[in-house]
Design a protein around this nucleic acid. Structure first.
Length: 273
DNA sequence: CACGAGACCTGTTCGC
DNA sequence: TGCGAACAGGTCTCGT
């Protein structure tokens, strides 16, 4: 589920508090942990994990791609929700959700809870976060992500543009929603070959990606159902899951097709190869 | 290197 | 109403 805007929202809420009375994770000490689904913990072993995390204080919380990074005094906790879920601080007395896969005690009053209905999510406790995050491509909203840099990423790439944008080694953070939305705004067909896009189209795509992500972050992401208790971007979607609805630019119906096993939504009139 | 299929999972919605 | 099929925001691995 969560893509860059949703993960950014989750990280901000952990860092800055999620509302009145909701604390920041930064500065808190993790006093214990419990694992409820074995495969959620990617590394190390549960025994090592529980013993190494206990007593650690949180130095910072940030996002890299679709990962939440919790920097500790020593090492870091990396969390990835994959296809939906929540990561939030709850009062210690809150009844445990049946989807809770891992939880951390933050002293006697609070807990950090990793909820993940589909069990695809993973958590790592690592000495050096860069070791695990090293394969990720650039952050699309960072100042260094210039048009020249983006254009270089497309150079000599014979792949279709949509799977390329979804490849986290190329750009970090885009998922199915925001690639469909970016391609529509840029007027580019999802199957267009990356290395065949004109400079003009590349520039439109670069602008579209950054505009869509920034706008989605402002609205705290897209909420479809309880899988992400988040933001209000849904009514601003122009193609994603809008098959048959009129295109906002030309009025023709939005189409759906499979691209690399993922459903893709686009306007056949506005987005030509 | 590029692509497709299958695996990992549960929950919700759709068609008959 | 009931039941199975289809589908869902992601990523990994394997085969061609």
């Amino acid at each position: 589920m969560p893509e860059l805007p949703e993960v950014e929202t989750i990280a901000r809420r952990l860092r800055d508090g999620a509302g009145p009375g909701s604390p920041s994770l930064v500065g808190m000490k993790i006093s214990g942990s419990r694992l409820f689904w074995r495969r959620t913990l990617a590394s190390p072993t549960p025994r090592e994990f529980h013993s190494r995390i206990a007593g650690q204080r949180v130095k910072a919380v940030r996002r890299r791609g679709k990962f939440i990074v919790v920097d500790l005094r020593s090492g870091a906790l990396l969390l990835h929700l994959r296809m939906g879920g929540a990561l939030e601080i709850l009062p210690a007395g809150t009844p445990r959700s049946p989807h809770c896969r891992l939880e951390f005690d933050l002293g006697p009053h609070w807990r950090l809870v990793f909820c993940n209905p589909r069990k695809f999510g993973r958590v790592w406790l690592v000495a050096d976060p860069e070791q695990a995050l090293g394969d990720l491509g650039p952050e699309p909203l960072s100042p260094g992500f210039t048009f020249a840099r983006f254009s270089d990423l497309l150079e000599n790439r014979r792949r279709q543009i949509k799977p390329l944008l979804l490849d986290q080694r190329v750009i970090a953070g885009l998922g199915n929603i925001y690639t469909d939305e970016s391609l529509h705004r840029a007027g580019i067909h999802p199957l267009a070959r990356a290395d065949c896009l004109s400079m003009e189209r590349r520039r439109r795509l670069w602008r579209a990606i950054r505009a869509v992500l920034r706008e989605a972050i402002q609205h705290e992401g897209t909420t479809f159902d309880s899988a992400y208790n988040g933001g209000a971007f849904l009514p601003r979607l122009r193609v994603y899951q809008l098959t048959g609805a009129p295109c906002r630019k030309c009025g023709r119906p939005i189409a759906r097709m499979l691209v690399g096993q993922r459903s893709s939504h686009f306007c056949p009139a506005c987005q030509r190869k």
